[in-house]
Design a binder for these strands. Structure first.
Lengths: 260, 260
DNA sequence: GATCGGTTCATTGTATACAAACATGCCGGA
DNA sequence: TCCGGCATGTTTGTATACAATGAACCGATC
């Protein structure tokens, strides 16, 4: 956990002498180089990842000075980052008392899926109406095929967790990209910003359920390709809804009946 | 446009000697006093209102020092406020070049309504499923009645603009409150954060259309009260969709074929 | 005449100093 | 024993100083 470091470092130069990547010259990093321009951005990325990976406890306080020391920057970019992460829903803020890692109780977590269903449903419909790019279609087909191979084995091995997550990500992002609605993207990102106990860590053991979920992927993709907007929307909504139900079962199965 | 002023003012005391409301004593402001605790918050509110009221031009740059002078605070709370408004979608940010008032082109504006339709539809369904509070139901009925009286005259006068906006706001907020999903609220707020040319300023002349829109309100309310979730969702979606269509007509009617 | 290079200026990004708010612990009183 | 008030320390909020970036301007060269 160390932020990239642009601009301004009148310090002891730091133990590990950070190499100042700055912004790439004109020739390096041709495609999506973008890199990080601002310390605040860099810190935001670092903290987001740390929180998503569970490096902080759920309700843990995030003290500015402490983080500043750990990341070897001043409080200023830390504050900016925390403010931003608050907007992203990862962090909570109480006016004169600072920031803490947000903890969604079970109900709020479940409620998230209602929003995802509505928004991803909309995304699927828009994608179907606009029509998906040939290149993207090819990517989707490849991803679907990779998914099929996971299930062809007839059982799951531990490496399949990441594989399925990847397939899932490719497909959903292809739909979103085709929908071409930046605001929709931003809002869904907030829904995804849920550390650990998100999809990836709970649901990947139930072979039968997972296979049905992948069947959904096939049908959604088909509907999008056929430009069947209403059908794509319905399928996507049902797809997400089934995740919600499955997750609720898992949660209620694991924790007796309280907030996790 | 002047922010409330808590804490810390080692300045010339300001021309108008701000009276330091601080946080209300224990007895004053009994109910929802909350007031503003932080300069940054206060500045955020001030700027949000100013932008929404059109006090800044669409694409206008928002220079930190300038605003700081105008609001008689330092750049620090200004920066925090701008950062926050960026998350709310009112302001745009480019890393080393600062903030500017966001301008939605016609397409993006229209696209907003797709999201509103999906989210408000969800809200209506959740409200129907949860059931609306008696007190809220009464408020809604009163609002519906106020709306009816607007149309009973058979024509619109200019004061009806604000009246209808108020009725509309009460009803939609009642639904959202009943839906009881904070994330849904936040996301819809982003959709509403569109200066001027939002509903209120364009559509309020067409008597027939407006009356149909208010009929929708009646039916949506009825569906929610009867706990008919699916119907409430469909009606709300159609309701918002009709706003989208009407707005598109208005825009295309007004501006020939460019970005407004 | 247009383009490239460097210089200057305006504006943003970061660090830091200081003031106010919250939290804690102590003490006295009921 | 329990409660309320005061002193203390810690942490946040704001102001400000300074560094670095981007834009504008200008002159020189092709």
């Amino acid at each position: 956990m160390t932020p990239a470091s642009p601009r301004h470092s009148p310090r002891t130069a730091g133990a590990a002498a950070r190499p100042r990547p700055k912004r790439g010259g004109s020739e390096r990093d041709p495609g999506r180089g973008a890199a990080v321009v601002t310390l605040a951005q860099s810190v935001t990325d670092t903290l987001r990842q740390a929180i998503m990976e569970g490096q902080f406890q759920p309700n843990e306080r995030l003290q500015e000075e402490l983080l500043a020391e750990r990341l070897e920057v001043s409080r200023t970019p830390i504050r900016a980052a925390l403010h931003g992460l608050t907007a992203e829903g990862l962090v909570e803020y109480v006016p004169n008392r600072g920031y803490s890692v947000r903890r969604l109780d079970a109900d709020r977590l479940i409620a998230t899926f209602d929003i995802r269903a509505a928004l991803e449903g909309l995304g699927a419909r828009l994608a179907a109406e606009r029509g998906m790019d040939e290149a993207l279609q090819a990517q989707c087909r490849a991803a679907l095929h990779r998914g099929d191979r996971i299930f062809a084995k007839g059982k799951l091995i531990s490496a399949d967790r990441d594989r399925f997550a990847e397939v899932n990500a490719v497909l959903h992002e292809a739909v979103l990209q085709t929908a071409d609605n930046p605001m929709l993207n931003d809002m869904l990102r907030v829904c995804y910003n849920i550390p650990i106990f998100s999809d990836r860590n709970v649901l990947w053991r139930d072979f039968g359920w997972l296979r049905r979920s992948h069947d959904d992927h096939h049908r959604i993709f088909e509907a999008v390709c056929r430009r069947e907007g209403a059908r794509a929307e319905l399928l996507m909504r049902e797809h997400v809804h089934s995740v919600k139900l499955h997750m609720r079962e898992q949660i209620e199965g694991a924790a007796p009946a309280g907030r996790a």
